[in-house]
Amino acid sequence: MIADIATVFWKEWREIAAWGRLRSKLGILILTGVFGIFMPLQEGRGWIENPAYLVMWAWMPLYLVSGTIADAVAGERERHTLETLLASRLADSAILLGKMAAGATYGLALTWINVLVGMITVNIAFSSGSLLVYQPAVLAAMLIFSLLTAVLAAGVGVLVSLRAATARQAQQTLSMTMLLFLLVPIMSTQFLPAASQAQLSQALEGLDPLQAGLTVGGMLLVVDVLLILAALARFKRARLILD
């Protein structure tokens, strides 16, 4: 099973690497330019020392994974490669998990390249002799949260991709979903009465960071597991052939 997941993972990465579209390569360069160079130069040492940026690094895989995972099933169906793949000896779960793993690691890899480039930028521009690095707790939280959100995006992405007729349609639906995922919590607070907003702000400030992190992390983990189970239940040969 692990070998089969690795085989699908290998193929997906080969396809990502071979996808020579200028637009996607340019997108990656712009992203690194913004999050690896421009913003660190604007923020200075705070880019590394302020733990609030943790939220941004946790968000980034959502955006990056959704760009590739949309292609996972809808793209194969559109390019008529899915049926041949389903006619092979691979188990449904191996195909699905291999695709999800490839999408998630792609988002994670790019996120961590940006983290690294940002750290180098800050050290070159603002170091006063000693190396500026993330605090171990922040670094661990960044690793865990980026992983959890990458899996979240892969889970949502593969479910959307399963239902979409084309990769483009999947990508559009997924972009909207991710946008809502980000905007709804932010916008909804704007509609709260001022007193409630103040109460919420006070409550957030009073939170123990470790406890809050564990709670959010635990919730994300539960959602991730549920999404993987839902995707496994939906990804069935007979159904995909009829789709």
Binding site: D4, T7, W10, K11, R14, E15, A18, W19, G20, R79, H80, T81, E83, T84, L85, A87, S88, R89, L90
Partner: peptide, 24 residues
């Protein structure tokens, strides 16, 4: 099986297409 469509990955080389199925 060679089904209705060739089922080949067009972004990959011929070698990679066969390599993938060899691994499978």
């Amino acid at each position: 099986a060679l089904l209705e469509h060739t089922g080949l990955y067009e972004r990959l080389s011929a070698e990679d297409n066969l390599e993938f199925y060899g691994r499978i």
